[in-house]
Amino acid sequence: MIRFEQVSKRYPSGQEALGDLSFELDAGEMAFVAGHSGAGKSTLLRLIALMDRPTRGQVTVNGQNLGQTKRRGIPQLRRGIGMVFQDHRLLMDRSVFDNVALPLRIAGVAREEIGKRVRAALDKVGLLAREASAPVTLSTGEQQRVGIARAIVAKPPVLIADEPTGNLDPMLSAEIMALFAEFQQVGTTVLVASHDLALIKRMHKRVLVLDHGRLIDDFRPAARA
């Protein structure tokens, strides 16, 4: 579902964010990207979403070579990728419902179908009762759940998250990670960038470890008995 082949990314400043990175993530697999601040975790995710392009190498997502994707094809590509950010990026002047509905409205989904999908997504993250609320009235953890509902409302085959628990306490962080694991169980490919090594260890999932833009470990936990 996601393949990096000898991918490097050098910014105009001369900084090499990624160097000769190669890995594959199967459909329906969940993995973490770990590493120190500045290791290249966010850059890796940005390349998957075509928010950046690699300097060298090839990135393939859902069978599509991103190097061959023209600018006009980027919106279509992103409809197949749910994105969750640490800072939520919610529209504070819109209701919870409208925030989650936004990707569907952009895609031209019928109004009745939007209502069904939005409420199903909010129910999945435990916020169905707050659909009419303004995001500012929600806790930080609830706002993050709204961001997750928005990311999965279009049922994308790929879900990426950049430090989604960075602003949350340990209990809320564990709940958010459990949500991501549930999406994997229904076939979504999930890739999460996180520096929380203790939480990652408890999840018992594959971990790609970056150090100064290079893959130094690809840890695959032994199967549980």
Results as ranks from 00 to 15, higher is better:
residue 1 M to F: 03
residue 2 I to N: 03
residue 2 I to T: 02
residue 3 R to S: 15
residue 6 Q to M: 08
residue 7 V to Y: 05
residue 8 S to D: 02
residue 10 R to Q: 15
residue 11 Y to I: 04
residue 16 E to C: 14
residue 19 G to R: 15
residue 23 F to S: 11
residue 27 A to D: 11
residue 29 E to I: 08
residue 33 V to G: 09
residue 35 G to L: 02
residue 35 G to Y: 08
residue 36 H to F: 06
residue 39 A to I: 04
residue 39 A to K: 00
residue 42 S to L: 03
residue 43 T to L: 13
residue 50 L to P: 06
residue 51 M to R: 07
residue 52 D to Q: 13
residue 56 R to W: 06
residue 56 R to N: 02
residue 59 V to I: 10
residue 59 V to D: 11
residue 61 V to T: 14
residue 64 Q to H: 09
residue 64 Q to P: 00
residue 67 G to A: 02
residue 73 G to N: 12
residue 73 G to H: 08
residue 76 Q to E: 14
residue 76 Q to F: 12
residue 76 Q to M: 13
residue 76 Q to W: 14
residue 77 L to M: 14
residue 78 R to I: 10
residue 80 G to F: 10
residue 82 G to L: 01
residue 82 G to V: 01
residue 88 H to M: 04
residue 88 H to D: 06
residue 89 R to Y: 10
residue 90 L to H: 04
residue 92 M to H: 12
residue 93 D to K: 12
residue 99 N to G: 03
residue 107 A to L: 12
residue 107 A to F: 13
residue 107 A to Y: 11
residue 108 G to I: 11
residue 109 V to K: 00
residue 109 V to L: 08
residue 113 E to W: 10
residue 114 I to H: 12
residue 115 G to D: 14
residue 119 R to M: 14
residue 121 A to N: 09
residue 130 R to C: 08
residue 130 R to P: 00
residue 131 E to V: 10
residue 132 A to P: 02
residue 135 P to E: 09
residue 137 T to V: 12
residue 138 L to H: 14
residue 140 T to K: 08
residue 140 T to R: 12
residue 141 G to F: 09
residue 141 G to N: 12
residue 143 Q to V: 00
residue 144 Q to K: 04
residue 144 Q to G: 04
residue 144 Q to R: 05
residue 146 V to T: 12
residue 148 I to Y: 04
residue 155 K to L: 07
residue 157 P to Y: 01
residue 157 P to Q: 07
residue 159 L to Y: 01
residue 161 A to I: 11
residue 164 P to W: 03
residue 164 P to N: 03
residue 166 G to F: 06
residue 166 G to M: 13
residue 167 N to V: 09
residue 168 L to T: 06
residue 168 L to S: 09
residue 169 D to H: 04
residue 171 M to P: 00
residue 173 S to K: 05
residue 173 S to D: 00
residue 174 A to P: 01
residue 176 I to S: 05
residue 177 M to N: 11
residue 177 M to E: 14
residue 179 L to S: 01
residue 182 E to N: 03
residue 182 E to M: 01
residue 183 F to W: 05
residue 184 Q to S: 06
residue 188 T to N: 09
residue 190 V to Y: 02
residue 192 V to N: 03
residue 192 V to Y: 03
residue 193 A to G: 02
residue 195 H to K: 01
residue 198 A to E: 15
residue 198 A to M: 05
residue 202 R to K: 13
residue 203 M to W: 04
residue 205 K to H: 14
residue 209 V to S: 07
residue 217 D to I: 11
residue 218 D to Y: 00
residue 224 R to P: 09
residue 224 R to K: 13
